[in-house]
Amino acid sequence: MRIAVQSAPFDAAAEIAGFGAGTNAGALVTFTGLVRDDSGRMQALELEHYPGMTERAIAKIAEEAMTRWSLADCLVIHRFGRLTVGEPIMMVATAARHRAAAFEAAEFLMDYLKSRAPFWKKEISPDGTCWVAAKASDEDALTRW
C-alpha cells in the first residue's frame, strides 16, 4: 500500500510499473482524475488540504479497502496546490485476485476520497475565485458501501 500527497505532477503510467508484481494478482484497475473545466472559463484549480490529516484519512480509507476486498496492493496519489485544466489531479490503483474486487475497491476509494479526504477545491477564472461546493450526491454515494 502506498499513499502520496504531493504538489508535484505524477506520471500515472510510471506509477503503476511493477504495481502488484509478485502478488499473484489477476486484476489491476487504475483510475486517474483530471482537472475539468465545467464553466469554460477556468484558468486554474487550487487545492487546499490539511497536512497530516490528509495522509491519515487516506491511509484509513485505503486500509479499509485492502481488508474488505482482500487487495494484493493499493496505491493512492492526490495532489494539492495550483493545477491547470487537463492536468492529472489524483489516481488510485488496486490489485486483486479477481476484477470485481479490483473495480469495486477502486470505486470505494474514489467515493470516500471525494468527501472524507480533507481537500478543498477553488476555481480560478477571470471573473474571480469560487470555492467548489460539495455535492449531496457525493455524500449519498457513501451509503452504498
Binding site: 471525494k114 479526504a117 461546493a133 460539495a134
Partner: peptide, 29 residues
Amino acid sequence: VALDQELSEFDAPLAGVREVAFFPPMTGG
C-alpha cells in the same frame, strides 16, 4: 469539525484535545 485530525461532531467533548479544525464539507477526488 476535526479533533486532533479525526473527523468529529459539534457535540463532542474537548477534554484532552490539542487541535480543533473547522472547514467546509470536503471536495477531494
